[in-house]
Simulated assay, not measured.
Amino acid sequence: MADNRLVHIVDDVPELDGPQRPESLTMVVVLDGFLDAGSAAARAAQHLVDLDDTGPGAGRVVATFEVDELHDYRARRPAVSFVVDRYQDYDAPRLVVRLLHDTGGTPYLLLQGPEPDIRWEAFARAVREVVERFGVTRTVSMGSVPMAVPHTRPIALTHHANDPELLIGVSPWRGELRVPSSAQALLEIRMGEWEHPMQGFVAHIPHYLAQLSYPQASTALLEQVELAGRLTVDLSGLRAEAEDREAEIATYLAEHEDVADVVAALERQYDAFERAEESGASLLAPDEPLPTGEEIGQQFEQFLAGLDEPGDPDDRNGGA
């Protein structure tokens, strides 16, 4: 069972107890850090919190994890403000479970906060206690990783689950991949061993946009969470953000031909891959070499700066 020192669960949650206890309850999991290219999952989670408007108890915290037992402060130092001659506004990391409601008023839980740096097994046991205390019937996670894909094509998603019957999409991968683990990955494995269903979605983020907020991917993730979690989420605000971001990127590419050429190369590679998949041929496109990470990094150094700051660098410096 869970390590009681790691999680503190609220005793009295009328909406989830007694005769009002829902027949099914979804818990969404978003752990910031490793699996969050483009801040896609974190932005999606914040969107869920912002949407909850059920009154004074909106976004009520129903479980709190002992971050001091899980967080490496020297590896990920929280921010603090220094004002004239004193420190204030320490941004303490929080790992909590909130009670939220979807657009139709259906209650669900959101586990959100920094991914634990240590004690993953104990963390998984603590999450198990939350699941069993509130009668969670399905757990759904979100994440995102940088990939060599163009932003002009549909956002691809990796579907995964500890029970094949939970999958609502086909995985783009074939065979076995050995990848760095995460607390979310371990949690899914352990939940399966404890016979608690868990599934998730990982969005593929264009790696040249991985350091920017990418609401397009947040929208794609939440569309899948709606299906898997039997929830209804108003995505209009996120879609508006996504349109604004697309316009910024399009404007920059129109003004910087060298950067546009790199994106065009990615588009050709992506389309060749898609054609090969459809025809059953080799997935490699030898006539369309994929730009290396170093080449893309060089091309997009100014790209990222250009989106963060208005105007062209030459204009800001008075021209060449």
Rank of each mutant, 00 (worst) to 15 (best):
L99N: 04
D68V: 07
V145M: 12
A63R: 02
Y252F: 13
A254P: 05
L177W: 12
F134A: 03
A156P: 04
E257L: 02
I118S: 13
H256L: 05
P14L: 09
R60K: 14
D102N: 01
A203G: 05
L283P: 06
E255K: 15
P22W: 03
A2Y: 07
S81K: 10
L16R: 08
P180E: 15
L209I: 06
R133I: 06
T219I: 06
A250C: 08
V80E: 09
E309S: 13
A2F: 04
L209Y: 07
F34P: 01
A2M: 06
R60S: 12
R21L: 02
N4K: 12
G143S: 08
R43D: 11
F134Q: 05
E248H: 14
R119V: 08
H159S: 13
L110W: 02
A183M: 02
A41M: 03
D50L: 14
R174D: 13
A272M: 04
P78D: 00
H151T: 00
V259K: 02
V10A: 15
A79D: 10
P114K: 06
Y214I: 03
V259D: 00
A305I: 11
R125T: 10
S24W: 07
V28T: 01
L111A: 00
D3L: 10
H159C: 12
T251R: 15
E248K: 08
G55H: 06
H207I: 12
V30D: 05
E294F: 10
P78R: 11
A260L: 06
V130R: 01
G33R: 08
Q298G: 05
A161Q: 00
D271T: 12
P78S: 03
R77P: 04
V140Q: 00
D244M: 11
A276E: 02
Q302L: 11
G280T: 04
R125H: 09
D52P: 05
V202T: 15
E278M: 11
A285C: 13
A156W: 00
A185K: 03
D312Q: 09
Q216Y: 04
T232S: 14
E193T: 07
M27D: 02
A281G: 15
F273V: 10
R60T: 15
L100V: 05
R74S: 13
E129L: 14
L307I: 09
A41C: 07
Q224C: 04
V262T: 08
V170P: 01
V179M: 14
E246F: 03
V84K: 15
H101M: 07
L166W: 01
G135Q: 05
L167V: 04
T26K: 00
V140F: 01
T139L: 13
V80M: 15
V80G: 03
P93Y: 04
L177T: 14
S181R: 15
I168R: 14
E226M: 05
L266S: 02
A126H: 00
G57A: 09
L187E: 03
L212C: 00
Q112G: 07
E309Y: 12
A250D: 13
H160W: 09
R76K: 09
A242M: 04
P291T: 06
